[in-house]
């Protein structure tokens, strides 16, 4: 498939997915957890020639992926990562799903067990619009990356960038790269910037993680 036909069929992939794709080396072994309809996985398979596998909770998503020729199984990040052997993948990706897991810390540790590196993206609850929304309206904030009402959200473990950094430090996780995105996917910071500042400005963030030596 050429880049044109991919874009014709899929449209351009989401900006955070593009950032994730850019972090992945060509021809590597990749597991995409919560791969949805397979947009990122298909991109990686076709443009980075990765040996790509996917895991997705919704059966509809799984069937769509397999129908598109992707190697995807129905599974749950919280329970099904345990089946994989150590170091089976070069990258384990979890995009916009960490906050929906029951045990985010355990999932992250499993990711770094089965993969040499983990790529994680999540919506930042420390984003200024979120803070302001709660402060001014007195209601659970909803934004582009947090579109749900409190009663039907799958997001049971929301966190801020600083929360995530703290948890990573305590879990022996090394931050190799971080890209913070503001509204409409503009870059607003990276790992060299002051965490407190990024935490205000970023609507979401993408992390490349490794295990501390």
């Amino acid at each position: 498939m050429t880049a044109e036909t991919f874009v014709q069929r899929r449209g351009a992939i989401r900006v955070d997915l593009q950032l994730i794709a850019d972090m992945v080396d060509a021809k590597s072994r990749v597991l995409d957890i919560g791969c949805g309809d397979g947009a990122l996985l298909e991109y990686l398979v076709h443009f980075k020639q990765v040996d790509g596998r996917g895991m997705e909770l919704s059966q509809q998503g799984v069937n769509a992926c397999v129908g598109n020729g992707l190697a995807v199984i129905q599974g749950d990040a919280d329970t099904d990562l345990r089946a994989y052997p150590d170091g089976a993948f070069d990258y384990v990706i979890l995009s916009q799903t960490l906050q929906a897991t029951r045990d985010p810390r355990g999932v992250l540790q499993q990711m770094l067990r089965v993969g040499r590196r983990a790529v994680v993206s999540f919506p930042n609850f420390g984003y200024w619009r979120v803070r302001l929304g709660l402060l001014l309206n007195g209601r659970m904030p909803t934004t582009q990356t947090l579109p749900y009402s409190w009663y039907d959200t799958p997001n049971i473990h929301l966190c801020t960038i600083r929360d995530f950094l703290d948890m990573s430090a305590s879990a022996g996780v090394e931050i190799e790269r971080m890209i913070a995105l503001g509204k409409d996917g503009r870059r607003v910071g990276s790992a060299v910037d002051l965490p407190a500042l990024i935490n205000w400005r970023a609507e979401q963030a993408v992390f490349l993680l490794g295990t501390k030596a």
Binding site: V62, V72, I73, Q74, D80, A83, Y84, P85
Partner: peptide, 18 residues
Amino acid sequence: VVQALNAVAANVSFVEIE
């Protein structure tokens, strides 16, 4: 079977049809 295949990092797809 899928879990056994995952345990050896095999290339596996699995669908359940409604």
